[in-house]
Measured scan of single mutants.
Amino acid sequence: MSIQHFRVALIPFFAAFCLPVFAHPETLVKVKDAEDQLGARVGYIELDLNSGKILESFRPEERFPMMSTFKVLLCGAVLSRVDAGQEQLGRRIHYSQNDLVEYSPVTEKHLTDGMTVRELCSAAITMSDNTAANLLLTTIGGPKELTAFLHNMGDHVTRLDRWEPELNEAIPNDERDTTMPAAMATTLRKLLTGELLTLASRQQLIDWMEADKVAGPLLRSALPAGWFIADKSGAGERGSRGIIAALGPDGKPSRIVVIYTTGSQATMDERNRQIAEIGASLIKHW
């Protein structure tokens, strides 16, 4: 067993022997301040990774656009098919120029040779490549099948209805392509620590998230040296922004954090800054 596999296998073990965790309302004060600064709703939840206990939450059962955070769930569904012998990570998928959609920095470079399922998941999570996500959605049967996968996990809230990039439209009061912070946090925890996926697939999923290259201005910008984070960000229309993450000190994750916002007129930089400040408060009061 590799060191990384050992780390993920012992996530519940280490967490069980940690000192009790206590909620700190100071972080919620910052979440509410972010709402004021952005002029928009902000949803927040913080779960203990081992027990699933909610440590703090704000608007945990209000719907927010998922945006690209759905790509972690998508690759979880792909990995479940791999575990069941219905898919192979090494299978190569070929596609054409007509398949390319807006923001496809990886797939646009491989029109000639195609990409493997493993490479597509890596591109979808680490670079948020939209064509990679659409190609992977095709392998599982489309958005409705991802929703069905989530329902089978016990998540009857999260739903995907459309493809990239239309799913980022974020129309107010439109339930399409949305989740709730509580539902997303619980589902992410199941994917990373539950028995739904094999140990190898859980490790692969967290490795992809740990290698995320496009979430630097968010929670990662607030992390002290030595902290662990595996995350996936999302951005959408109407001032929408979000991030889902597993993080913790001492090089291992111990909490799940989900943050979503929508309806702001603020710039992307300002949305990023507010999420980073929430992260800084979380870490300060850990």
Rank of each mutant, 00 (worst) to 15 (best):
T27N: 05
T27G: 04
V31A: 07
K32I: 14
Q37N: 06
Q37F: 09
L38I: 06
A40G: 13
Y44H: 04
I45E: 04
E46Y: 14
L47R: 04
L49T: 11
L49H: 05
L49E: 03
N50S: 12
S51V: 10
G52T: 06
K53A: 12
I54S: 15
I54C: 12
I54F: 15
L55V: 12
E56A: 06
R59V: 02
R59Q: 14
P60S: 13
E61F: 14
R63P: 10
F64D: 00
S68Y: 01
F70T: 13
F70P: 01
K71V: 00
V72S: 11
V72N: 02
V72D: 01
L73I: 06
L74C: 05
V78R: 01
V78L: 10
L79W: 00
D83W: 02
G85M: 07
G85L: 07
E87C: 10
L89T: 12
G90L: 10
I93P: 03
H94E: 08
D99L: 11
S104C: 07
H110Q: 13
H110F: 12
L111C: 07
T112N: 14
D113K: 13
D113M: 06
G114Y: 07
M115F: 04
V117Q: 04
R118H: 07
S122T: 14
A124G: 14
A124Q: 03
I125E: 02
I125H: 03
T126M: 07
M127K: 13
S128C: 02
D129Q: 01
D129M: 01
N130Y: 02
N130M: 01
A133R: 01
L136W: 01
L137M: 08
T138M: 15
T138P: 14
T138F: 12
T139N: 14
G141W: 04
G142E: 08
P143G: 11
K144Y: 06
E145S: 09
L146A: 13
A148G: 09
F149Y: 09
H151N: 12
N152A: 12
V157D: 06
R159H: 07
L160G: 04
L160W: 00
W163M: 13
N168L: 02
D174P: 01
E175V: 11
R176Q: 10
R176I: 06
R176N: 11
D177C: 03
D177N: 03
T178K: 03
T179A: 03
T179Q: 00
M180D: 09
P181W: 00
P181S: 04
A183D: 06
A183G: 10
M184L: 06
T187C: 05
L188W: 04
L188E: 00
L191M: 12
L199I: 12
D207K: 10
D207C: 12
W208H: 03
E210Y: 10
D212Y: 03
D212I: 03
V214A: 08
L218R: 01
R220W: 02
A222L: 11
L223E: 02
A225E: 15
G226C: 07
W227P: 00
A230K: 01
D231F: 02
R241N: 04
I244C: 12
A246W: 07
D250F: 08
K252E: 10
R255A: 05
V257D: 02
V258A: 06
Y260K: 00
T261N: 04
A266E: 13
A266G: 11
A266H: 10
T267L: 09
T267I: 08
D269A: 13
R271V: 12
N272L: 02
A276T: 09
A276Y: 07
I278D: 00
I278F: 05
I278C: 03
G279R: 02
A280P: 02
A280C: 13
A280R: 13
L282I: 07
I283W: 14
I283N: 04
H285Y: 07
W286D: 02
